[in-house]
């Protein structure tokens, strides 16, 4: 473990940490910090349009994390779908409903006094159980992932793959149904 958690001396801990920094670790810390900061901005910004922009940054950060994890295909999918599609969807919805939410565009945080300790409590539980769990895993060198994913989707995971296309069809039909304007002349 490069980061000895049982060290009592804080200075020794810091020294140990800095000496084992590699370029990889520095890039991880940079991307992780950007992702985290953007995420905090998403949930705290008063103006929800600003929130959305920081959401884009968060998604970019996550794509960066995928690249650090050698997940090349997934990083591309993340950018294409999350930033390219979902963000645009949210933007449209915000703009279409902004008249209604005009007063609410300046979002204040309700009840953050209660929410913050609850969230921090959950965070402590998660860190203690998930991060400090003895995983004991080492990373083997990884190659490009696209071929493996493609093969899996066409052989072992063919059924969910085809089912997902029906899910998307239903989502499209339902979304159009709900969002479209109903002129009164259509009786059915």
């Amino acid at each position: 473990m490069p980061f000895d958690l049982h060290s009592i001396n804080l200075f020794d801990m810091g020294k140990q940490f800095v000496f084992t920094l590699t370029l990889q670790k520095i890039s991880f810390l940079a991307v992780a910090f950007m992702t985290f900061a953007s995420a905090v901005a998403v949930v705290t910004m008063k103006n929800i349009f600003h929130s959305l922009l920081f959401l884009v940054l968060t998604f970019l950060g996550v794509a960066g994390i995928y690249l650090l994890l050698s997940a090349d295909f997934l990083a591309a999918v993340q950018v294409l779908v999350y930033i390219g599609a979902i963000t645009v969807l949210i933007m449209f919805a915000l703009m279409l409903t902004s008249k209604l939410m005009a007063k609410r565009v300046s979002q204040t945080m309700e009840q953050w006094i209660v929410a913050l300790p609850v969230t921090l409590g959950i965070l402590v539980v998660l860190i203690r159980l998930v991060v400090l769990n003895p995983w004991g895993m080492k990373a083997a060198p990884a190659g490009p992932t696209t071929g493996i994913i493609g093969t899996s989707l066409m052989t072992k995971y063919l059924l969910p793959f085809e089912l997902a296309s029906i899910v998307l069809l239903v989502a499209v039909v339902g979304a159009i149904l709900l969002a479209k304007e109903d002129k009164s002349d259509d009786p059915s």
Binding site: Y157, P160, V167, V170, A171, L177, L178
Partner: peptide
């Protein structure tokens, strides 16, 4: 687990649409 997640969400999505069906 993958199939469970996919189909559970499939059911949920259709349920959301059906619940809001009376748009007026």
């Amino acid at each position: 687990l993958i199939m469970i997640y996919l189909t559970l969400e499939f059911l949920s999505l259709t349920s959301y649409i059906l619940a809001g069906y009376l748009k007026q």
